[in-house]
Nucleic acid binder design. Sequence first.
DNA 1: CTGTTAGCGCATTCAC
DNA 2: GTGAATGCGCTAACAG
Lengths: 346, 346
Amino acid sequence: MSLLSNILFLNNQPTIHDIAKALSIDSSTVSRALNDSPRVTKHTKERILAKANELGYQRNLLALNLRKKKTNTIGVVVPRISRYFFSSVIQGIEETTYLSGYNVIICQSLESLDREKKIIETLAANRVDGLLISVSMETSNKEHFKVLDNNKIPYVFFDRHLNSKTDSNVLIDDFKGGFDITEHLILRGCQKIVHFSGPLDQAIYKNRFLGYKSALNKYGIEFKQEYVLTSRLMENEGYKGVDELTKSALVFDAIFAANDLSAIGAMKSLKEKKISIPEDVAIVGFSNEPISSVIEPSLTTIDQSGLNLGVTATNLLFKSIAEKERFKQETIILQANLVERDSTRK
Amino acid sequence: MSLLSNILFLNNQPTIHDIAKALSIDSSTVSRALNDSPRVTKHTKERILAKANELGYQRNLLALNLRKKKTNTIGVVVPRISRYFFSSVIQGIEETTYLSGYNVIICQSLESLDREKKIIETLAANRVDGLLISVSMETSNKEHFKVLDNNKIPYVFFDRHLNSKTDSNVLIDDFKGGFDITEHLILRGCQKIVHFSGPLDQAIYKNRFLGYKSALNKYGIEFKQEYVLTSRLMENEGYKGVDELTKSALVFDAIFAANDLSAIGAMKSLKEKKISIPEDVAIVGFSNEPISSVIEPSLTTIDQSGLNLGVTATNLLFKSIAEKERFKQETIILQANLVERDSTRK
DNA sequence: CTGTTAGCGCATTCAC
DNA sequence: GTGAATGCGCTAACAG
């Protein structure tokens, strides 16, 4: 029999039927034993567990999930995992899911709408129980979320959202962040503040921009369009932004960059041009990238606490999953604080 | 009928049977049509597709994969996605899988053996077609890989491996890297080179260490144990390392850190202590972290090209998956080049 | 070209 | 406490 079972099991992964056959019992009993059902004798339970171990049995989650119509898995979609902000959000997500036994599938859209579409379809096809997403820079509507609605898969936007009250969102107060950071610069004596902005059909960049304008307005500083440089906020765009500024001979005494990458790029360019940042030009970024404190200790930023955001978003999603039928949409806005790295500056 | 179908489909995700019933045909025809089989009339194909669209049908990959015994998915396990090196490897992996229609599940062990075990079990239970892994710092044997062997799931180690010829590995030539970097320091006049090393039961750290020793030997410099500081190479450990060195009053003129994090930590500490790095102490890291060039333009590193590593590892895994039965183990060693960031140094 | 049948691996109802 | 039967959603062999 040992030989027979060896032949039978050689090329196939063992199933509950295999272990049932080997023990001359029914597979349903094996199933119960493996799930530690109280309706199975201790004795048979032990025999089954021993056999399962012997055969190297590993339960098939595909079959289980198909049967249960639940995967215990949530999908996470971010533009790029290499961005510190997103990996810290993921950290928060995983901490939360780990405790409740949920699994996480992490996907990167790489700022491409096409990839985002494909990812969402795949996740829906894989029947994830829910979805956490921060949309790509190319995403401005939620057509491709219909698949999720059709399949009743709940989802929560975090950080990068679509500005809709009918969605569930966990957000940073970007308006206040933009306002605070601009005010901070003004109070330090800056009057000609350049703003490196992102795509304005993206709610977060629009709100940061509006915060910027609002602060200027409060202090009676005239808003000038030429002080706003719009890009996709990649590092090289921050770099080129400074180039443009110096070439155009526009006078400026501060830069408020709408994200960390562009701030870093700007910093590099200023350094190369030997424009002394602490004295002549202040840069303020929108980030919780810790590395920035090394690059430029005087860089002031808005700390977004990705960890907290991740935890909050996951819990909101869990709530939606639990409520199942017609879950109520909800928007949570977290406050982010201005962090001045180097308080010795004037 | 429209009402009936609405009631029927309200709470459940539509299946091929639903669309078959609605069209009074068999589900197998629907299946064929959805897979664009040539054995279905154009006419019925169109009817089916229209209906599928109308119902918001989304195929269930759980069922498909269960049936086909293939998931078209590979698992990737790394210590931390936030480490630039790993996220660049992932970049390479995704580029390769994207082209062949494979999906990727990314998991973080967070340097914990326990988590690594659980992750591998989950991936095995989910029947991934293969696995790419860079082990945690706590991993020194492959007991927990038995599940994969039992289920005939091929796997390839990249970067952090277990030094076994019976595995498939895609590696960096760490010995040569350690040698090159040490030689580089010696040729620049350094004689008292401190080495920040990692757990020596990890092949990569051992090999970097052996490369270090070998270079010292070549140039007739005596190896001294007190010049080697072993830790888990986190940033704060690099920081504390320098503290220890200055406290112990050990004379040194260079540091070779076995990874980027500890190099960054060391750099910070030196900066704070106002020890002029370019003149008195040289630091050399083992990394392709691009940010380091901003932190300290004079930091020389070994460039590991994570992208290339990811591509190579994925292709090797694909080969193993294709060969299926008794795939041959293979080790590929990639060369990494020394990159001197600031060539103006003496 | 389309329908019938069977089964992937599992859990769950209903019997006994 | 255990077995028999059924079905999750899908594809593939076999008919016709």
